[in-house]
Write a protein that binds this DNA or RNA. Structure first.
Length: 426
RNA sequence: GCGGGCGUGGCGUAGUGGUUAACGCGUCUGGUUGUGGCCCAGAAGAUCGAGGGUUCGAAUCCCUCCGCUCGCCCCA
């Protein structure tokens, strides 16, 4: 007799009706800014060949190595739930010959991503990203452009206490010489560093700069900074990005310690974080340039740039800042009816209203007028239509305003749409 | 993967060894013939996260597990 009740899988919150206005606001905002910048929507599948991310995202990244949902389907193919959007969009770019479209190709998507990670505030196993990519341009202006999209989105959403952090991590080859210098710098201090950082030293030396461990902080101070050692090309690129951002009126701070976790980034990297948020998972949007990725996935050299923004985190920020979304949607008309012979009339009436574009909901015929009107009231409907056997006999319905102080009137069913419109206009 | 906090009706809480687990909100039904909001009355709804142990007696004490949550790691 004891049946176990199912629960949503760990880290996969339901988005309840009360949260939907926030989602509406964000999704509408995304639609506005992407239109404004001429980005076209693309939707790629929720799952892809696992190899796409292993190669694209990088099989030594935590995202792929420890967090990716990988499974074999019934046909024996090794698939993965997408942990991020970029490799999938690059795959689609190649698969559909977008290289022969006018370049650059500006694409965006909004879709769920999956990472097997321990859930906490602002971090979920299924989360939703707004992702923007510009493929086929090495222009620094394009880096600034994608940043501008996100910045404008957040401004439109009423989030104005965000901080844009920017840096450049150079191109892949010149970066190796810097990484060697960095390792030389840290090597003598290795035993004094945190365990995490000792691990990073071999795996991903750049992340040494990202450490928040107190034991590492004194050494970070004097470490050579990548941004001070850029190749001339990357240096020029970086200066143009900053100039473009300034021209766009977007404030930013150069963060020499900014490092991204994915393998494919080069040159421009950035993230948007809430000001004075020290939490590790604070960033609400992050991205950068990835000039080598398309080639890595078997295409021609195609310099590209883009970002991903976390919708749940963005909504969290809206709530933290008490940005109120538009009110939840409500029906305009609630149809109260009583009696078996009346039910079909209620149905046609509601249908007529909906055909006229008026949102209507029908009460439950088994309930008393009183009960149905209570429901009408709590539903937020502005007008109740009351329909009983008497009204049907007269070919009419009572139109009762619920939000303004005026009397209900009887209206002929043939003219019900006009009567309702009139009542709604009060 | 590591560390902290917390699990009592749908939600928010009270109850910290002793009769049928309490309250608020919400839900439902009524308060004469067919009319909401306010008010009043009543009802439904809890195996006190699960299992085990201690005890005459456990929501309360102990153990294990599960779940949620916050932080670290990592990332959006």
């Amino acid at each position: 007799m004891t049946t176990t009740r199912f629960q949503a899988p760990r880290g996969t919150p339901d988005v309840l009706p009360e949260m939907q206005p926030y989602w509406d606001a964000v999704l509408r905002g995304i639609s506005e800014v992407t239109d404004l910048f001429g980005f076209q929507r693309i939707d790629t599948p929720v799952f892809e060949a696992a190899g796409l991310f292993e190669k694209g995202t990088g099989d030594t990244t935590d995202v792929v190595e420890k967090e990716m949902y990988v499974f074999e389907d019934r046909g024996g193919d090794l698939l993965a739930l997408a942990p991020e959007a970029t490799p999938a969009i690059v795959r689609a770019y190649l698969e559909h010959g977008m290289g022969s479209w006018p370049q650059p190709v500006r694409l965006f998507t909004v879709k769920p991503m999956f990472r097997y990670d321990r859930p906490q505030k602002g971090r979920y196993r299924q989360f939703t990203q707004f992702d923007c990519e510009v493929l086929g341009s090495s222009d620094p202006l394009v880096d600034a452009e994608v940043i501008q999209i996100a910045w404008l989105l957040y401004a439109n959403l009423g989030l104005n206490n965000l901080e844009l952090r920017l840096s450049s991590i150079d191109d892949i080859d010149p970066r190796q010489t810097y990484v060697e210098r960095l390792k030389e710098y840290f090597r003598p201090h290795l035993s004094k560093l945190s365990e995490d950082s000792q691990r990073r030293f071999e795996r991903n030396p750049l992340r040494l700069l990202d450490s928040k461990d107190e034991r590492d902080l004194p050494f970070k101070e004097n470490a050579p900074k990548l941004i001070d050692a850029l190749s001339p090309e990357a240096q020029d690129h970086h200066e143009l990005v900053t100039a473009a951002l300034t021209a766009a009126g977007i404030p930013f701070t150069i963060d020499p310690l900014l490092v991204r976790g994915l393998d494919y980034y080069n040159r421009t990297v950035f993230e948007i974080v809430p000001q004075e948020d020290t939490r590790a998972q604070g960033s609400v949007m992050a991205g950068g340039r990835y000039d080598g990725l398309v080639e890595l996935l078997g295409g021609p050299s195609t310099p590209s740039t883009g970002f991903a923004a976390g919708i749940e985190r963005s909504i969290l920020e809206m709530q933290k800042n008490e940005v109120s979304p538009p009110f939840a949607k409500q029906v305009a008309v609630y149809v109260v009816h009583r009696g078996d012979s009346v039910a079909v009339h209620a149905m046609t009436l509601a249908t007529t209203l909906r055909q006229a574009g008026i949102a209507a909901q029908i009460g439950e015929s088994g309930r008393s007028f009183k009960a149905q009107l209570r429901r009408a009231d709590s539903s937020g409907a502005r007008v109740a239509l009351i329909l009983g056997e008497d009204e049907i006999a007269r070919g009419a319905a009572m139109v009762k305003p619920l939000r303004v102080d005026s009397e209900q009137v009887e209206a002929p069913i043939s003219g019900i749409v006009d009567a309702v419109r009139k009542a709604l206009a009060e």
